[in-house]
Design a protein around this nucleic acid. Structure first.
Lengths: 79, 84, 79, 84
DNA sequence: GTCGGCTGACGTCAGCCTGG
DNA sequence: CCAGGCTGACGTCAGCCGAC
């Protein structure tokens, strides 16, 4: 006899496969979008950190080179 | 391929980037904290120096007055001058 | 009379539109891929600069705090 | 929409990122160059100090010897001690 | 080996935005 | 206003790679 116990129907198997791949594609696109946003956010964070580090390095270098840093220190200590 | 540096799944890529960002942010804030302490300490010592300036004038008794232009310059006694 | 001078045929217009959108989609995917690679490369560059700046800041801070820095200086001057 | 901070076209996004990266790399290399000069100058002055140490000993004639432990410490004469 | 989960690439539709 | 250029999102096919 024709055993249709599980999914021996080729058309049904195909539809099931297409359905699963459809959902998988949606989730994959979602994850990829999240990944790109993660990259952009990471770039922004690293950008700010690099700017801060460069400013701090300039301050320390100028301090070491006898340039008055009192103003910046007082300004930073005021807030 | 789970421990690869360039995973195939987006989830692992996101996890790797979040991990790196956490480490770098920790190191960054650590350095900034130390610099803040250095600045605070420098400021405190500058104030101390400024307040004790009237009393410490005794060491110049009978000699020349200190160079007032150098007061407030936190690096005035460095062993070598590098004005780049 | 029936004027077919340009593209009054609706089927032909559709095919032309589909063709153009096909090529546009290819170029768009190419540009998006290049953009993601640009982001990843930018992250790597910012990462190295961040590491270098932090190391340099540590060195200058330690130098300012009386820690001997002669070894690192000689090491960096040797190469 | 060409001058927007978040353009719609990928070409403009790539152009913006390349521009920012060029500026940041320029600032980065500028600071690193200055630090290299500072380091070189510091090294040269350290060597000069070291080589002139034998001749400058005359200023201690009849007095106490200089503190050898402080030789090689490039920040030994700082106005305030901040050993964080 | 095979099988299933993810992803790369494709073509198509729908929608936004700008130049004409 | 609207025709056309780009892009977002979809479904489908093909291929890779790990788990079974």
């Amino acid at each position: 006899t024709s055993q249709t116990s599980k999914t021996d129907d080729p058309q049904l198997k195909r539809e099931i496969r297409l359905m699963k791949n459809r959902e998988a594609a949606r989730e994959c696109r979602r994850k990829k979008k999240e990944y790109v946003k993660c990259l952009e956010n990471r770039v922004a964070v690293l950008e700010n950190q690099n700017k801060t580090l460069i400013e701090e390095l300039k301050t320390l270098k100028d301090l070491y080179c006898h340039k008055s840093v009192l103003g910046k220190d007082l300004q930073k200590a005021a807030r | 391929m789970a421990a690869s540096n360039n995973p195939r799944k987006f989830s692992e890529k996101i996890a790797l980037h979040n991990q790196k960002q956490a480490e770098e942010t920790a190191a960054f804030e650590e350095v900034m904290k130390d610099l803040s302490l250095t600045r605070a300490h420098r400021l405190q010592l500058q104030k101390t120096q400024y307040l004790q300036l009237g009393q410490s004038r005794g060491q110049y008794y009978g000699g020349s007055l200190p160079n007032v232009n150098q007061i407030g310059n936190s690096a005035m006694d460095l062993p070598f001058q590098t004005p780049f």
